[in-house]
Design a protein around this nucleic acid. Structure first.
Length: 491
RNA sequence: CGGGGUGUAGCUUAGUCCGGUUAAAGUGCGCGUCUGGGGGGCGCGAGAUCGGAGGUUCGAAUCCUCUCACCCCGACCA
């Protein structure tokens, strides 16, 4: 299953991440470049994320649907910016059949099975969805359309990293259609807030809300809202985006509706998504040199119970207590695992559950049976305490809540400690070289300046943060009336 | 696409420079046994046509040519 220790974060953060993903049984590389196999433990975390997000989408009035994987090539060229943004990373289906090679060397593509029009494996579904919405929308009575889909998409990225950027990834994409601009903007902001509260409440990960600069905007969007998180190595990670698409796609696909007066108008649109990249964000937010640290609200196993025993008789006595605790904890909705695997010794299991980020561990041995206690260990602080058997259920629930809160608070402190202000490009560079982090600085609003600063510092503008906009002098050009934005080096 | 690296047992690797009997170790796996409060000990066993193709040679994991794949660092990136 998993070997011993990890490289430390300070030694090589990137290597630490890769080893952690592998050793905690989250995912592994497939034989296809850039693709990953999400293993059951990793997938269980994703499923928990999905479950909560899905609930939140439905609570905000959305329904799930499913649109096809393949998109006719011609659809993609209908929205000019959109195609420009995605063309370079599309997988294309050109044939529909294989045949046995004449020389017996295996199968080859059958040249007779060439498609008249190539199909694109969706990198995102705006085009096929808007092509469909065209048929669904005639009147204002058909609006709004509030649809989400859970799907896989493919983007042929040059360089990939498990969870953070893979050629194929899992995500959800919401696509909504509205009568008015205001309504669409409200929807865009609403979903950004859903993402932000999911990140904070469930992932225990503070995020910065804001809008992207034009340069960083989604291809085809009028405005891209985002949540940005700060990883332990000081690099920023875009954790979710919500796009106000204006009437761009409605115009490209000729989607109009008749309003109450019978007048035809183009529909206003939004799209929003989060992906398995959130797994990467979760891993890099909380984990330590011993392994994964999972927030209780997303942990597939919240409590692991490990028996310590000599011989079958002791084991069966311990099991009696353990089984009772399992029943009681399950009744309270706690995800608990009793690990009585005789092939592994207690010490091995302790290390294993730490590696896998299980928030709480209960050890029960003969001494506990005598004293009427159990040993309760916290993953986040690595502290242990003895708890009376009759208090276990309450204590577990209290501690799970405390851990969730503690992780969030710790992440907030980290975030604060690594947020800076810079009044010159040199100062920003110094800060980034030393610590990384979010750097607040004034920017004159031009693409030229943005790119120049990126050139000089490798930092990009993560967002124009939400709230009142501060004005000052641009850190590059010195021009007045520049706005305060957040820079960081990013994944 | 540039730079670096790897491919040998399920996994991690040694061996490759400098060719030489039956390809080595750790881990994992199976059986037995002693164990058990922080990744156990001992014994036995199974497990590899050394990424692929071609070549040099009496002899190739090792040398040569070609080739495939993946990883890492960059550039790029809703």
């Amino acid at each position: 299953m998993s070997g011993k220790g990890l490289v430390s974060r300070s030694e090589d953060f990137s290597k630490w991440y890769n080893e952690l993903v592998a050793k905690a049984d989250l995912a592994e590389h497939s034989d296809v470049r850039g693709c990953m196999i999400i293993k059951p433990y990793g997938f269980a975390i994703w499923e928990n994320m999905k479950k909560e997000l899905d609930r939140m989408f439905k609570e905000t009035g959305h329904q799930n649907a499913y649109f096809p994987l393949f998109i006719p090539k011609s659809y993609l060229s209908k929205e000019a910016n959109h195609v420009e943004g995605f063309a370079k990373e599309c997988a294309v289906v050109t044939h529909y059949r294989l045949k046995n090679a004449d020389d017996g060397s295996g199968v080859v593509v059958d040249p007779d099975a060439k498609l008249d029009e190539e199909l694109i494996v969706r990198p995102t579904s705006e085009t096929i969805i808007w092509n469909t919405y065209k048929k669904w929308i005639q009147s204002y009575r058909d609006l709004p359309i509030l649809i989400n889909q859970w799907a896989n998409v493919v983007r042929w990225e040059m360089r990939t990293r498990l969870f953070l950027r893979t050629s194929e990834f899992l995500w959800q994409e919401g696509h909504t259609a509205h009568q008015t601009k205001d309504e669409a903007v409200v929807e865009t902001e609403k979903m950004l807030n859903v993402y932000a509260s999911f990140a904070e409440e469930f992932m225990a990960m503070p995020v910065l809300k804001g809008v992207k600069t034009e340069n960083e905007r989604f291809a085809g969007a009028e405005e891209t809202y985002c949540i940005e998180a700060l990883m332990q190595d000081g690099k920023a990670l875009q954790a979710g985006t919500s796009h106000f698409l204006g009437q761009n796609f409605a115009k490209a696909f000729d989607v109009t509706f008749a309003d109450k007066t019978g007048k035809k108008n183009h529909v206003w649109a939004t799209s929003w998504g989060v992906s398995t990249r959130l797994m990467g964000a979760l891993i890099m937010s909380h984990s330590d040199d011993k392994g994964l640290v999972l927030p209780p609200k997303l942990a597939p196993i919240q409590v692991a119970i490990v028996p310590i025993y000599k011989g079958q008789e002791q084991l069966s006595q311990i099991s009696k207590l353990a089984d009772k605790l399992v029943d009681q904890l399950r009744a309270e909705g706690v995800a608990v695992k009793y690990d009585d695997d005789d092939a592994k010794k207690p010490g091995w299991k302790f290390a294993e559950y730490e590696l896998k980020g299980v928030p709480l561990r209960i050890a029960i041995g003969p001494k506990d049976l005598e004293k009427g206690t159990v040993e309760l260990a916290r993953r986040d602080t690595l502290t242990k305490q003895f708890v009376k058997q009759e208090d276990v259920i309450d204590t577990v629930q209290t501690l799970l809540n405390q851990i969730q809160e503690a992780l969030f608070n710790k992440a907030i402190s980290f975030n604060k400690a690594n947020s800076y202000e810079a009044s010159s490009v040199e100062e920003m560079n110094e800060i980034l070289n030393k610590n990384g982090g979010f750097v607040y600085a004034f920017w004159d609003g031009t693409k030229e300046t943005e790119l120049k600063i990126k050139d000089l510092t490798k930092a990009t503008i993560r967002c124009v943060p939400e709230g009142e906009i501060e004005k000052g002098n641009c850190i590059l050009t010195g021009s007045a009336n520049a706005i305060k934005v957040v820079f960081a080096r990013a994944y």
